[in-house]
Simulated assay, not measured.
Amino acid sequence: MKLTLTNIKELKRNIDNLLTKRVCNYVIDRWSDYDDKKHIFTDVLDHGCQSGIVGELIYYTDTVRFYKQYRQEINELLYDLMNGTGLYAPSELFGSRWDKEDPLAQDTYNQNLLA
């Protein structure tokens, strides 16, 4: 799919996944801020939410609420990523950033990381 505003809006209309709809809303809201539209995504991937690039996901209270709201979708993405990479523990994906004493992401630190 080509990255166009029309395609993003169509994806949002045709998908049931609430997390994908939320991401589509983010992209639509930021569309005019970027000359090179792929940077809407790469800025988040390169710098993470803690950089302030996603203003509504800076503080733990915000990221934990986001994680809890989209827990099922995030866990499905995590499962798909682990399955696709052949890694079978979040600590293998996140390295030292993952709190191994909280393997099920019950506490805020790992929830923040997953958000």
Rank of each mutant, 00 (worst) to 15 (best):
Q111N: 04
Q50E: 10
G52F: 03
L114H: 01
K100L: 13
Q50M: 10
L18S: 01
K38T: 01
G95E: 04
K68H: 11
D43H: 11
R97G: 00
G52R: 04
N25W: 07
Q111D: 00
F66M: 12
N112E: 13
N75C: 02
K12T: 01
D80R: 07
A89S: 15
G48R: 09
M82G: 05
D35I: 08
D29S: 04
N75Y: 06
G52I: 03
P90S: 13
T4D: 07
E92C: 06
D35Y: 09
V64E: 12
T42H: 13
L114W: 04
I28L: 05
W31E: 06
P90F: 14
I74R: 15
E10K: 15
I28M: 04
T63K: 15
N112H: 12
K37C: 05
E10R: 15
E56K: 14
N110T: 09
K9D: 08
D36E: 15
S32G: 08
N14E: 14
S96F: 10
L11T: 02
Y60H: 10
L81V: 03
D107S: 06
S32N: 15
F66E: 11
L57W: 00
N75D: 11
F94K: 00
I53P: 02
T42C: 09
N112Y: 14
C24F: 05
G84F: 01
K100T: 15
L5Y: 15
T63Q: 08
D16Y: 08
T61W: 12
K100G: 11
T85S: 04
E92G: 08
D107V: 03
G86H: 03
R13Y: 10
I28G: 06
L87P: 01
L45K: 04
V64W: 11
D29A: 08
S91R: 11
R13C: 10
R71N: 14
L19I: 02
D36W: 07
M1H: 10
K68S: 09
N110R: 12
L19M: 02
D43C: 04
R22Y: 03
P90V: 13
L104G: 05
T6G: 12
G84C: 03
G95F: 03
E73G: 07
L3D: 09
R22N: 07
Y70F: 14
W31I: 08
I28R: 05
D80A: 04
Y26L: 10
Y26P: 04
